[in-house]
């Protein structure tokens, strides 16, 4: 079910401000692609264009083309709601629904798509929680609120929630930046496991993390102060970190700026 994404010449705007410009790239299925770059370079913005979450912000819009296999996500006949159903997302800070139990959180996406039987829901919730490496920790308290979990557990709960609807792609926007090192490790293990089934795109500020979890890495940078963000280069992670083509990439990776 993992799918390939092809982006061609994509611009994204906030009102009249152009945040990213001319992005063209291919995201391979069943692999982890990491986006790195200095703050404000538009990597999160670009990530949000991949499931049309960008346009949720008032005044935000997108120009260009994103193909998921043979379907243009920005075709005028495509309902953004259905795109988000196919391209799941995990956010920077864990955001379980505070009024729902752990079980209901995982089942939330399923229930949107019509009634499902209790046993069916139970099955999917269990599988998703197991896939998210959370099942053993929560199986005895599925009816307790999700907000009672630790930050790392909440984030894995959010991952379980996202994969419960079996999306084709999983987007992660700095999923570990609000977590402690041990929880971060747990999430990274999980990512390694999930890439067998999903196309995963992760934005991260942590370059060691990008090096650890990703197969391919894309480096984004600003052309200058007030300029839109651009894709500088994209390649195998090992290549980016050892032998990048661009000077800017090397400077960033060696810590000379950013």
């Amino acid at each position: 079910m993992a799918k390939q994404i092809e982006v061609s010449d994509l611009d994204a705007y906030y009102g009249s401000h152009k945040a990213i410009e001319g992005i063209t790239m291919t995201v391979e299925p069943r692999s982890v692609t990491a986006f790195i770059g200095p703050s404000g370079c538009g990597k999160s913005t670009f990530l949000r264009t991949l499931n049309r979450m960008h346009e949720v912000i008032p005044g935000a819009r997108v120009q260009g083309k994103i193909m998921l296999e043979d379907q243009d996500l920005y075709d005028k006949d495509v309902d953004p709601v259905s795109v988000r159903r196919t391209v799941g997302m995990v956010f920077q800070r864990p955001n379980p629904f505070p009024t729902m139990s752990i079980f209901d959180n995982v089942a939330a996406g399923l229930r949107l798509n019509g009634r499902i039987s209790k046993s069916e829901a139970q099955g999917i919730v269990e599988t998703s929680l197991k896939d998210a490496n959370l099942w053993n920790e929560v199986k005895d308290r599925l009816n307790k609120p999700g907000s009672g979990l630790s930050g790392g557990q909440q984030q894995r709960l959010c991952i379980a929630r996202a994969i419960a609807v079996s999306p084709a792609v999983l987007l992660m926007d700095e999923p570990c930046s609000a977590l402690d090192p041990i929880s971060t490790l747990a999430i990274e293990d999980l990512i390694a496991k999930l890439k067998n089934d999903y196309t995963i795109v992760i934005v991260t500020h942590n370059m060691q993390q990008a090096a650890r979890v990703s197969d391919r890495t894309a480096f984004f940078n600003l052309a200058g102060q007030g300029q839109p963000g651009k894709l500088v280069e994209m390649d195998e992670t090992s290549k980016i970190f050892t032998n990048p083509t661009q000077k800017a990439t090397e400077d960033y990776i060696t810590g000379r700026f950013g």
């Binding site: 979450m53 988000r84 956010f91 939330a108 996406g109 798509n113 996202a162």
Partner: peptide, 17 residues
């Protein structure tokens, strides 16, 4: 909270949902 709203949108919820 905006992040909870985005959580449901990212799951493929319509505006009403």
């Amino acid at each position: 909270p905006k992040m909870i709203e985005e959580a449901s949108l990212a799951l493929g919820a319509t505006r009403w949902e």
